[in-house]
Write a protein that binds this DNA or RNA. Structure first.
Lengths: 172, 172
DNA sequence: TGTCAGTTTTAACATAGGTTAATGCTCACC
DNA sequence: GGTGAGCATTAACCTATGTTAAAACTGACA
């Protein structure tokens, strides 16, 4: 919570419209964002132009390309608003610096990274062991509200299938 | 490096034979392990008895079910030796406690968690956007030495396909 | 050297999901 | 109320991978 407070007081508020991008794959982005309101998607674009969604980002979440920010390399994914959003932007470096001075901030960062890695582990597990149908059912039961606000196109891209395949799955 | 030193001096050495498990899916495991020598696999077992490999664990790596250790819940995966191994075992809690007292340890933990999340991100990307053939090619070019030491069965389970499918991919 | 267990390959068939394209639906805007 | 853009469904066909089972290979050991 200390961390959240720091971001809110030291960060800058940015507002983005539906469809706009916060940052794009291939760009440097040294910031981390706290989502105040709205909904975003983080997605990859492959060379042949196909989009696959890494995650949906809901309010309350801290998001950023940690990779890009930390190693000063281009981001591997884009972040785009599905609905109009209010975000608070803060340089990732500021957080790291702060964490060097404060044990409690360090601990919070560790907590955040731990829970991030849990989330990714679950996702990895699902991609590795479940069928598209099972992944769809999981998503529906884990995030019923979210699913209602998404297009079938975006749900399909999140599941790693085409919208056509998702339509088929639904009609069973 | 401080962290590694701490583990080496405060941890207990354990040796396990090829085929033995360090911990099993479903068990509590509050430890973290530093791999001194050997090779292991971390894998999931699904209800219908199918095994899928999450990652191969080589010497120098720190491994454990962070999830299980941190939240005191059963591990979601098993850890098994592919070759005889020497590991150093230390309670995850000891690391967390230590990190609360030392900024430099906290920082190291943050680094480890960051690089862990990068690794998982790459894996997620591959599972989501690449075909089995591409994933196999990636693995061969990224870890040629590792691939030589694995059975086709284990490689297939890591790629998320059957050994039969992998054999087909190779003969193209 | 022969045998056996474990691994890999091959083959035949089944199924999930991809691709393309046509059709139908819905809602914002004139 | 009519029109058009974007979204969702359906259908026909294609390809990758799964499943099962048999055959071939490999290496350890009696």
């Amino acid at each position: 919570m200390e961390l959240q407070k720091f971001i809110e007081t030291n960060g800058t508020l940015i507002q983005i419209e539906k469809g706009e991008q916060v940052f794009a794959q291939g760009e440097l982005c040294d910031y981390v964002y706290l989502v105040k309101t709205g909904l975003l998607k983080a997605f990859y674009l492959t060379e042949n132009g196909k989009e696959t969604i890494k995650s949906f980002v809901q309010s309350g979440t801290i998001i950023g390309s940690l990779n890009a920010a930390h190693c000063h390399v281009p981001s591997t994914f884009s972040l785009q608003a599905i609905e109009a959003c209010k975000l608070i932007q803060v340089p990732f470096k500021a957080l790291l610096t702060l964490s060097k001075e404060s044990i409690s901030i360090s601990q919070e960062l560790i907590q955040i990274l731990l829970s991030l890695s849990l989330k990714k582990e679950r996702r990895e597990f699902e991609l590795l062991t479940l069928s598209a149908t099972q992944r769809y059912e999981n998503l529906c039961s884990a995030e019923p509200e979210l699913v209602k606000n998404l297009t079938q196109n975006d749900i399909a891209k999140y599941l790693g299938i085409t919208p056509v395949a998702l339509s088929r799955i639904k009609n069973k």
